[in-house]
Amino acid sequence: METLKISLNKKKYYVNIGYNIINNKDLVSKLKIFKNSVLITNTTIYKIYKNNVINNFKRLGIINKKIILQDGEIYKTFDSVQLIIEKLIKLNCGRNITLISFGGGVIGDITGFVSSIYKRGIKYINIPTTLLSQVDASIGGKTGVNNHLSKNVIGTFYHPEIVIIDLMFLRTLPKKEIISGFSEIIKYSILFDKNFFYWIKNNLNNILFMKKNFLLKCIKKSCEFKIKIISEDEKEKNSRMLLNLGHTFGHAIESFTKYKWSHGESVSSGIVMSSIFSNVLGKISSSEVNEIINLFKLIGLPTIGPKNMYSKDYLKYMLRDKKNICNKKVRLIIPEKIGRCVLLDNVDTNILIKVINKNFIN
């Protein structure tokens, strides 16, 4: 088991990474401290892990009650938050209760958000079960829900007590979900480490066949990058905004398709779009843009947006992005080269529209 430490001004916690560590005695003993916790999960995860992980937690006294939500991004709403809060009230849960998030990024975001507002703050534990949530959403304290007009505009910064990243859970993921998770791993390499980018490219078969050591390196490396950034900028005032590479386009795609495109698919297209826009501005070379496009293609991720999504659709949702200073200016993260990215404060929307019309209309 690998253990990474997150030290912030008012919070310190650990990220535990490994294979089958959910049964690690030391880790289980730490979870027992939070006895009689309430498990928050979804129908898919509950069905798969009811007879082993969940029943074992119950037997050990770690969880007392459970709340099961429907599975999917469309359920990341205030309705789900209200459902959880009403059940906690009916269970007479006080401020000493701990919530255990057991699922992907949607469950993690909702559980964290509820924890931050229920009785003005309770503890929670994050056990992510998808590759995407293991390398991204489970770390950093971002919580929230979607609104029908935009994604992730409602939320808080609120950190868990412990994060448990167990590669064992990835065995039950559909191939599409595994592939989707690699969009965030590639994002980190484009942001911070050119050598890591080419290591991924050169070891792609081992990674896609989910060989433990290769997968562990991808996850640990991604977590280390994120931990470093949030330690510098916890509340996304400066450098942490770089982690949104591809997300301004990506969130627009998710909202437009009503989440029929997964987060990973949307972000991969968004990163390509940001890279091409950067190239038009003369920031990144065409050869490096092609390297980025080819790696996403090799993995099986899209490099162009959805059919029938036009520049007006992109711009409508991009203007609602939470990074923007006001609704008339678009902020965008672009790569200057593989391994270094920058924030553009005031994107020229006329150029943006031209680039979208020329390159991204499917």
Rank of each mutant, 00 (worst) to 15 (best):
Y118A: 06
K10C: 12
S286C: 12
K283H: 12
K237D: 14
K221C: 06
S278M: 07
R331D: 02
K329R: 10
I230N: 07
F57C: 11
L242I: 09
I334Y: 04
K25I: 13
P174K: 01
M318Y: 03
L281T: 10
D79M: 08
N350R: 12
S7A: 14
G121L: 05
K237Y: 12
F277D: 01
F182R: 07
D345A: 09
L4Q: 09
T349V: 15
Q82G: 07
G121P: 10
L315T: 15
N126D: 13
I219K: 01
K35R: 15
Y188H: 13
K235A: 11
I54F: 02
I284A: 05
H148Y: 13
K217V: 03
L298M: 15
I284S: 02
F78C: 02
D136I: 13
G18M: 03
S222F: 09
N36C: 05
G305F: 01
L245M: 08
R171E: 14
G18S: 11
D321L: 01
I353C: 03
L301P: 04
L31C: 06
G300M: 08
I85Y: 02
K228L: 11
L170Q: 04
N147W: 01
S133L: 02
S275E: 13
G105K: 03
K123M: 05
E86A: 08
N23Y: 14
I63H: 03
I276P: 04
R331F: 05
K10T: 14
L215P: 00
K221W: 11
I107K: 02
N51P: 11
N206M: 04
L242C: 05
V289H: 04
K65N: 13
K312D: 13
K87S: 08
N357I: 11
L39E: 00
S189L: 06
E86Q: 15
E161G: 08
P302F: 07
D313Q: 04
L242K: 10
F296T: 13
M309R: 12
G121A: 08
I127M: 08
I45W: 03
L27N: 06
I200A: 06
I353L: 05
D321V: 07
T156N: 15
K194N: 14
G141R: 02
F169L: 09
S268R: 06
R240I: 08
M210T: 05
K201T: 04
S37V: 06
S275Q: 05
Y158K: 00
L173P: 10
P335W: 06
T129M: 00
G103W: 04
L343N: 11
G108M: 08
L39A: 00
P174L: 13
V280Y: 15
I74M: 08
G140V: 10
L243V: 12
L332R: 07
L208I: 14
L319A: 10
K123R: 14
I154A: 01
C93M: 12
D345T: 05
P174D: 10
I62K: 02
K90E: 13
K32N: 11
I229K: 03
K194A: 12
S7L: 15
E184H: 07
T130G: 03
L281K: 14
E2I: 15
L204Y: 03
S275K: 09
I292V: 14
I229S: 06
I100C: 02
I253F: 13
